[in-house]
Amino acid sequence: MTEKIIFALESVYREPLEIKAFCFGDTSKKTICIMGAMRGNEVQQMYVCARLVQELKILEINGHIAKNTGIMVIPCANYHSMNIGKRFWAMDNTDINRMFPGYNLGETTQRIADGIFTEIQGFEYGIQLASFYQPGRFLTHVKQMVTEFTTDDGLAYFGLPYALKRSPKPYDTTTLNYNWQLWNTKAYSLFTHSTDDMKEDSAENALNVIMRFMKKREIINYPIHAGYVTSIINESDMLQIHSPCGGICRIKTKIGDVVERGQIIAEILNPLTCEIFAEIEVPEKATVFFHFESPLIVEGTVIFKLVKNNDF
């Protein structure tokens, strides 16, 4: 393993931000890059990468990394925000993942994005540990942004029960995933159960998923469980349920559950009297893919995403 600083940024009173990358195998080869936290609350994403570094060290020592392949892992690109509990850039609240491909003469986060992208463009495969802007629990899944540049459909190689395809919106065009694709990297976003908090089981699952992908792409040679037969679905085909009112949110199911038509899966309560404002009923048999997770909910918030079971 070699460790290198791919970008450094001075601060007036803090120690410099030094973005570290950990490289394995043939460092002259750009085979796969795994990007962890770019936002200050993506602790789980950083942890998954840290575990990956730990595992790859052992694999490398034992000769399990294929010849002529190079692996780069960047656990955390924004610990200046992480250390002060902010999601976006510490000073101006801009989002590094809305600054790609970056600009080396531009503003601070454009320079950070440029510093990262200069190092990580040109990899054959790119996996970003991504997060969702709303508090909630997801089934671990992999997502591919389908663009005019998408050249590969390796979604099934992750061996997860579900993989999503998504059409990009205008604001996606400045994300890492989109720009990776623009520069010919086969890019995927991996979502684990959570963001701000660390979940060991979910992190281990994500770790195995990445290792499985690398195994199936012959980047590592190490026995690993083959995983699931993946159901690939379009994000727009999911059942999305919005909260019909605001109040206290009481979820009565969990991710992965198969729920039946008519089943009550959540209640919204009057926060001052506990009277039931609304019950969330399942419209048709489905699997719970996402549920909102916070005690208070605003009207219109996405409370559930369900995968219709008759799709398969």
């Binding site: 009112c245 605001g246 109040g247 206290i248 926060p271 605003v298 009207e299």
Partner: peptide, 8 residues
Amino acid sequence: SQINLAVN
């Protein structure tokens, strides 16, 4: 446009 927030 109007929308109900969580508390009152």
